[in-house]
Nucleic acid binder design. Structure first.
Lengths: 194, 194
DNA sequence: CGAAAATTTGACATGACTCAACTGGAGTGG
DNA sequence: CCACTCCAGTTGAGTCATGTCAAATTTTCG
């Protein structure tokens, strides 16, 4: 059923017996959000880490001047939420909004603590996941400094072709750290230049 | 002795019996680098995760155009190395160079795998550490997009006053993603403007 | 002290932003 | 089926933040 994609995903990182899977199931909830709904809102405490079974989300924040900045997108088989808020139990910096109807598998903070106790393997699993996320984030910092806007766009398009299809262009611009107008100009130039 | 700072650090995150500490000690090596020496070089495989007991390091990379970009600094009680290379056993993207004489406690890849087996608590410990590192990295992405160079510099100065004292200004500029000339102008303006 | 490294300063160039107007669908309702 | 609106995307003129290059100055350190 719906949890299958999460189970497959976990099994790519650690072994799980069917015994362990049924334990796990007790602590996960499936939930579906409509397009436009929020999984987390900036200022609230983020109560869940969410694994996307289907759909697409946009993580963004509003800075003190009122400008919106896209932090990341997430689609099937990605995790989403505000991890900083989730682990510290402090108000979230980010909004997580569904760009499509989105079904997720959620761990609440309490349940996740129980899962760590009962299934220590998952401690390892989450370490591996977060390790990868950290490395990816660090590489993004590096790209943002060493590449120009046009190159960042080309990288994004190549790395996440599916996401580019599914999210509006002005959000892609924000993710890249540029204005929607400038992205439009970059695209015009790319079409002309080949 | 020298390992004490690492032990204290770990104990801030998980409990360790003296039994466990002596197990741990078998798998850690202390090593001292001179100023200017490299702990990792771009293109090599990063064999160690290093905890800094004393000293200061600069993590940077050279992009295809030959420009250097500082990724991070690290001082006492921080971890350093190229985690992406360490976990994937692939060539490092980064150089880690000592800006001062630097003493570190190192885990080799093999030893760390053993430690995870023998002391599952450390699986948890490293998950917590990396979680924090990931959250910090994500926030840095956000700052880089929402703040101007001058504001990023002021944030850096406030957040890491000690690091600013210890590393040359041109490396700070690179860390902030600006040229050394422009940082110099920002500083001139700050001094005049109060 | 002298040489090399780090920092500052100035003139000019450019990548990216702002603002404002315009284009072109995708509904929506009369 | 047309007129209207709304939203995403495009385009252009002017501006600003930051970069480049080159030279002068200061600091560091053998």
């Amino acid at each position: 059923m719906e949890l299958q994609s999460l189970i497959n995903y976990i099994r790519r990182h650690v072994d799980l017996s069917s015994q362990e899977i049924s334990t796990l199931q007790e602590y996960v909830n499936i939930r579906t959000y409509k397009k436009g709904q929020y999984i987390v809102q900036q200022g609230d405490i983020c109560h869940y880490e969410s694994f996307i079974i289907s759909g697409c989300t946009n993580t963004y924040f509003i800075d003190p001047e009122g400008n919106e900045h896209v932090v990341m997108f997430a689609i099937e088989d990605w995790w989403t939420g505000d991890l900083g808020s989730f682990i510290s139990r402090q108000p979230a910096d980010f909004n997580v909004q569904c760009l499509e109807k989105t079904t997720v598998a959620q761990f609440s903070y309490q349940n996740l603590q129980i899962v760590y106790k009962e299934l220590p393997k998952l401690e390892r699993f989450f370490r591996l996941i977060i390790q990868n996320a950290f490395v990816a984030s660090q590489k993004r910092v590096v790209r943002n400094f060493s590449l120009q806007a046009k190159e960042r766009y080309l990288f994004f398009r190549k790395q996440y072709p599916e996401i580019e299809q599914r999210v509006p262009q002005y959000l892609v611009a924000s993710y890249l750290g540029i204005t929607k107008q400038f992205l439009s100009k970059i695209r015009a130039e790319l079409i002309l230049g080949g």
